[in-house]
Design a protein around this nucleic acid. Structure first.
Lengths: 362, 362
DNA sequence: GTATATTATGCAAACGTGTGCAGCGCCATC
DNA sequence: GATGGCGCTGCACACGTTTGCATAATATAC
């Protein structure tokens, strides 16, 4: 048995299908009483207007296409959750697609979004390659980028303030007396990685701590890569006493590697992450990290998209500040292994006391 | 500028739009050469057929509606990832919606899926209330349940073999000499919880370990609830030496509570989880748990759905076995605190040696 | 040469909606 | 009583496809 159409309902209500259409869309043209009657009948029969038919004539579908590298990544999941939340409020539906960062998948996904005539697309944490650019060119479907990984400017985006947040994280380590601070990055060349690394350097420079290239290693944004990178750091003649990780997933791997080497966190090595995934607070020790308001960023991405299509708003580039969450994976540097090539003005920071750092107040 | 329609393309190719339609769908009726030419032209102009228009006449949309309680839950994310993967292979798109277990949201979601005319719905980890049942009744959209939480039989489902897996997990603890084994469940009344608890009891009975009601507590399937429940256990006169948790998220909270009480894992308390989320292997210590092939289960859910709509297959209830993954969060019970009300035939299991359990081979 | 089968193409209807426009009945106004 | 305005309703078209059916063009058989 097929679904009831608007004409079936019209027959039942003894009016034309136009009247039904108007009644359901609360068009004031139709008589109050009959409108009420029609809506009641529609309810009783569980009538559901066909979105396809509607969109055919209105040329709007009330759908967003969301592409993430993989929904399995907790960061992506949080963002998508925020998008979906905002979308539902506006009666939008969301198409979800994983790109897996595979070009073949990406073209397939973009093609499907085009055929579905989505009103807009949100792309998170991707290097926006030619694929999406093409999408934007052909038809006028607006795209909002979230934590875009491709260098260059785009029309609409919401991004975390990477450099500032990274600087704050590293300054936290400096304040604890650390001088041998490493950076465990993402794959080389990705925008967030570049920016967080820049923030790391700014903090070092500001504190007059010499930059040491061998303290910069790259993983893959996941635990495996973080672990491998950390092992390289630990094999150094003078291994770092603290590491700032590109993200929490990387930190997970790094922590594992540190423990496997027989070292303790934070007594031997302090660890800072980025993202504040839910797991961060359940690690042992709980992870000090930079919080990204992921869910809220998802909401913002949808809202700018929505204003772009409905209000013909002008769009914008939103920058969201991060927030340092200090937990127990960071501690003052231990005296015996503290930096012995320090160029800092004060003596090597004193044991349990954290205060007298030369970078406080910035 | 609007998107090109099939008629625009027909004009360009100097044929009727019917011929274009047939050429693109590789209908053998149309001449090979012209078909080739048309397809080339379509490619050049980036023509994308409107899914809406097509579905209007074919009455199939090639879309699945997926509803999860929340995509933020790593279990849900893994499952969805599997669904999406299989869907893309069949050129299906997936609508994602969070129910948040709020009835208001659920009706909104179901309504939207109905209007979108999804070909099928996959519901994961939900108590399938009257909402979805209604969906199934009105129109003939097939529903596949994944780890359904509502007691009772449904037509199509894929479920983890809860009782068997739970029994295996608890037998692992018994084999390590534990007798004071607790169960930290989900909310009372949910199907998976009931079944895993049943498996727990089977293992105890089989090993002739008396069942102790105060060793059964309930959380909420999340770290918070798991932690609270664990604290209640630790406040007991004779706290358990091992806990079997409803899932990994619960275990996360339990582990935190154990540590906060100044106890060590696994020396003082052994912990077993369920799911094998990616975090399990990155906990300290790495978590012993029952692996659910989440991604594969997602795939299976889609496949049964797909066969249901395309082959008019008869559907089925699939049961997937779990797999115990032993890591370092479980260890032999310590002598000094080992069970002193043991009814087991052998003496309280001896220190480091694990072998001689009375339940081996089951 | 005509009759017939084969191949390729176009015509037109249908899917379920939204919406401009015409038209209906009715009431008020002059 | 004609005129005009108002409130409401239906007609008909459009949106972009797929597909049954008719038909034109061509090849094959006699």
């Amino acid at each position: 048995m097929k679904r009831a159409s608007i004409k079936d309902l019209a027959r039942i209500a003894n009016v034309s299908h136009s009247t039904v259409s108007r009644a359901l869309s609360r068009n004031p043209l139709v008589n109050q009483a009959t409108a009420e009657r029609i809506r009641r009948l529609a309810d009783e029969h569980g009538y559901r207007p066909s979105a396809a038919a509607r969109s055919l004539v209105t040329s709007r579908t009330a759908t967003v296409g969301v592409v993430v590298t993989n929904i399995t990544d907790p960061f992506a999941a949080e963002v998508v959750s925020g998008i979906e939340e905002a979308a539902l409020e506006h009666d939008y539906s969301v198409f979800l697609a994983n790109s897996n960062a595979e070009p073949a998948r990406e073209v397939k996904v973009v093609r499907s979004f085009e055929e579905r005539r989505v009103d807009g697309v949100i792309v998170t944490s991707s290097r926006v390659g030619s694929v999406y650019a093409g999408l934007l060119a052909k038809a006028e479907v607006p795209i909002v980028l979230l934590n875009n990984q491709h260098p260059g400017e785009f029309l609409h985006s919401v991004m975390i303030a990477n450099p500032e947040a990274a600087t704050e994280a590293v300054q936290h380590l400096l304040a604890l007396g650390h001088r041998r601070i490493a950076y465990v990055g993402d794959r080389l060349g990705r925008q967030s990685d570049t920016e967080r690394f820049a923030g790391y350097r700014v903090a070092l420079d500001y504190a007059d701590v010499p930059f040491c290239p061998e303290y910069v290693v790259h993983g893959d944004g996941k635990p495996e890569g973080g672990g491998a990178a950390m092992r390289r750091l630990l094999a150094l003649d003078e291994p770092p006493t603290a590491v700032f990780c590109y993200n929490d997933m990387t930190a997970l791997g790094a922590m594992r590697a540190i423990r496997d080497a027989g070292l303790r966190i934070p007594e031997d090595v302090s660890v800072v992450g980025f993202d504040d995934l839910f797991v961060a607070r359940y690690m042992d020790p709980p992870l000090t990290t930079v919080r990204q308001p992921m869910r809220r960023m998802g909401r913002m991405a949808f809202e700018t998209l929505h204003s772009l299509v409905s209000d013909a708003g002008s769009g914008q580039n939103i920058k969201v500040p991060g927030e340092l969450i200090v937990r127990q994976s960071t501690a003052p540097v231990r005296k015996e292994i503290s930096c012995n090539f320090s160029t800092a003005p004060k003596s090597t920071a004193g044991g349990s006391n954290v205060s007298d750092s030369n970078i406080s107040g910035s």
